[in-house]
């Protein structure tokens, strides 16, 4: 583990905050993509170089940094929405909550029974902070697209945690998780497109009206 990895993790946490504070969906998607690319670079800094590692790095960057953002961006483009209009909680309060969550992540990380070699790193706090940010986005935003972004951030948080375990974790599990997500995104993209064509809105708070009586 070197200090460069730590600085990249700081960047990951900053991107969390940027996403909480921004209202433009395209901007959020780009931020998620940037976060994905950083996450792709991270394993290669942490572990000794091998073919296996190069494959992981390339596939992660491809999936998180290019394919998924492109798909969501496409959905945004088709649904003609540009910004999250009315979040349940305003941008400033969510930004503030995000900062509090990040601080709490450091507190939680200090309390976890970690192996001593993991204690001094930013991996665990960054992972928890990213997880919490994902939850925040999921709970405070209305648009289905924002929710998808929230899921992605959540997954990124889990991925950061996985960094500690890459050696123990078989490659297939990681790839499987990614694939799951990819399918999830596909389904969501299709669903969103359908909904927006049928109802000309993808505001999830209005989807409650669809329930069966």
């Amino acid at each position: 583990m070197n200090s460069l990895a730590d600085q990249l993790l700081v960047l990951v946490m900053l991107i969390n905050l940027v996403m909480l504070g921004s209202s433009r969906l395209i901007f959020s998607i780009r931020a998620v993509a940037a976060q994905g690319v950083i996450l792709g670079i991270l394993p290669s800094l942490v572990h000794p170089l091998s073919f296996h590692l190069v494959a992981i790095t390339a596939s992660i960057i491809l999936a998180k940094g290019i394919v998924i953002p492109y798909l969501i961006g496409d959905a945004v483009h088709k649904a003609h929405i540009r910004r999250e209009v009315e979040p349940f909680i305003g941008y400033l309060p969510t930004l503030f909550l995000g900062a509090v969550c990040t601080a709490l992540a450091f507190v939680f990380a200090a309390r976890l029974p970690l192996a001593p070699e993991h204690r001094s790193l930013l991996v665990v706090p960054a992972s928890i902070a990213t997880l919490l940010t994902g939850f925040l986005i999921l709970t405070t935003r209305r648009k289905a697209i924002s929710q998808v972004i929230g899921y992605l951030v959540l997954e990124n948080g889990i991925f950061v945690f996985g960094l500690l375990l890459t050696e123990a974790m078989p490659f297939m599990v990681e790839a499987g998780a990614l694939l799951d997500l990819l399918v999830g995104i596909f389904v969501m993209g299709i669903v969103i497109n359908q909904i927006s064509q049928e109802f000309s809105t993808i505001d999830t708070s209005r989807l409650r009206a669809l329930k069966e009586e």
């Binding site: 700081v10 900053l14 905050l17 504070g21 400033l92 930004l95 503030f96 900062a99």
Partner: peptide, 13 residues
């Protein structure tokens, strides 16, 4: 204000 609060968060970070 958002940017200024963001700056505070940066420094707190």
């Amino acid at each position: 204000p958002q940017l200024l609060v963001g700056a505070t968060i940066l420094s707190a970070f």
